[in-house]
Design a binder for these strands. Structure first.
Lengths: 127, 127
DNA sequence: ATCGCGCTACTACAAATGTAGTATGCGTAA
DNA sequence: TTACGCATACTACATTTGTAGTAGCGCGAT
């Protein structure tokens, strides 16, 4: 079940995001998908993808012409969990975090209600 | 109002946490407050505090004997905001984040209610 | 007055990260 | 079937981050 603790840098995480979104992509695809003022060089992206491959975060799927395709080998959720846990650790728990979201206007009371509703629905049906 | 974009590393953030908690502290205090298996050397902590000072994140307050005291020069909230914003950017918003918290059992429906109540109370009184 | 010890200031260095160049090979259009 | 161009594999290097050593000064006990 792959309990290896894969750690991603900021840029690596950004690349993973692209892959999670596209499902499968070439280095060129990733480069194109990265939205920046000054886009990174092709080989820069290539290096990141290679490092991700070495870490076991992505894997090659197929080849088209001489271009390799990559796909995520770890789930978005597993990465999120790690990041969220770190943040929770810092701010001191979920409640403070949510409170912060509301205080800073990132989350409204209505949003809270909405989430509640969603969660309840899921609970009833799924699990 | 100091719009400089101060960026903190993980360790720097940890040190800031201690300072926010203690309000004011010497390097030795910070070292003692850091909870790890293998605690960092005194001079390691000292280096971090110095870097924080250069970044304008902490400032010297006074001297006792030959030991300097430091205090935070930036707010906890400003740092949290930055980190939270990054995470929100990644996961795609507050609602998904909160949903994730609930899904992974980090936040219960009761917690949600509690936050709601707190927020409402604050709204009524404070702002 | 002086000596020791702790604290500071400065320096050093390895690992991680961001960034990119070069060499070379393979596929495809002509 | 050959040359061109894009992709890969490998290498390189600057910056950031984590980690710590050393020199030397000043405070406080004697």
């Amino acid at each position: 079940m792959s309990r290896e603790r894969i750690t991603l840098t900021k840029f690596e995480t950004e690349v993973m995001s692209v892959l999670w979104r596209l499902g499968e992509a070439t280095v060129r695809d990733v480069q194109d998908a990265i939205d920046r003022d000054e886009p990174p060089a092709y080989t820069t992206v290539q290096t990141i993808v290679q490092r991700l491959e070495q870490k076991g975060a992505v894997r090659r799927t197929r080849k088209e012409g001489n271009a390799l395709f990559f796909e995520p080998a770890i789930t978005r959720k597993s990465v999120y969990r790690r990041l969220v846990d770190e943040l929770l650790d810092l701010v001191g728990g979920s409640q403070p975090l949510v409170a912060h979201l509301v205080e800073t206007g990132k989350l409204s009371l209505d949003d809270l209600k909405a989430v509640e509703k969603t969660v309840k629905a899921i609970k009833r049906s799924g699990k």
